[in-house]
């Protein structure tokens, strides 16, 4: 069953709907996310299950995987990010165009998980800002779907001016991203 898209509030007449730009853009963005799967380990296999026939991420308008960061708007980090991989992840994030969202899937991406070791980055939020965290080691496909739905909620309700706001620029600056 695919997701039902709610009708927007606004002034409606025959053949037209007048609503605020924010709402229209939010709706469009929400239902056409292009995720970039940054799958490194075990969670990546569960992501494959999420994409495959049984769970089918395509039902939520996020079917088109974009392997190029330039054309993606959702970065899904799945799996352990080691310190060797950290700079690569950051570079991928920096290459993505605004607006962009980040989903940290699994315990490793969130906090380093059971790998409290010298070689593992203890959570990707040390190098890039994260919007939604999905717990689990690895999370079930339903959980990953739930994470994507949470992202969709953020996307729909985000103000169109957020990416230019001083708060957002400050957030990026705190990660040293220009």
């Amino acid at each position: 069953m695919s997701q039902k898209v709610e009708k927007l509030d606004g002034f409606e007449g025959p053949g037209f709907l007048a609503t605020s730009l924010d709402k229209a853009v939010g709706l469009a963005r929400k239902n056409s996310l292009w995720p970039l799967p940054f799958a490194t380990s075990c969670c990546g296999i569960e992501f494959m299950a999420t994409m495959a026939s049984t769970y089918d991420l395509g039902r939520f308008g996020a079917e088109r995987l974009s392997f190029s960061p330039r054309q993606a708007d959702l970065l899904m980090v799945m799996g352990t990010i080691s310190k060797k991989m950290g700079p690569v992840l950051r570079q991928v994030y920096e290459q993505m165009a605004e607006p962009k969202w980040v989903l940290a899937v699994g315990a490793c991406a969130t906090t380093g998980g059971i790998f409290d070791t010298y070689s593992v980055l203890q959570g990707i939020d040390r190098i890039i800002p994260v919007d939604v965290y999905v717990p689990g080691c690895p999370p079930r496909p339903e959980q990953i779907l739930d994470g994507v739905l949470k992202i969709q909620e953020l996307v729909q309700n985000e103000s169109r001016r957020r990416r230019e706001s001083p708060e957002y620029l400050e957030l990026l600056a705190s990660y040293g991203i220009e």
Binding site: K83, K84, G112, D116, T117, Y118, S119, V120, Q122
Partner: peptide
């Protein structure tokens, strides 16, 4: 081969600490 070239020390020697020394939350 596995670790970063910039790593100092030899990780599997017994004296090398397992945990990341820069952790702030623990």
């Amino acid at each position: 081969i596995l670790n970063m070239d910039s790593l100092e020390g030899w990780p599997l020697r017994k004296e090398f600490p397992l945990e990341d020394p820069f952790r702030a939350d623990k």
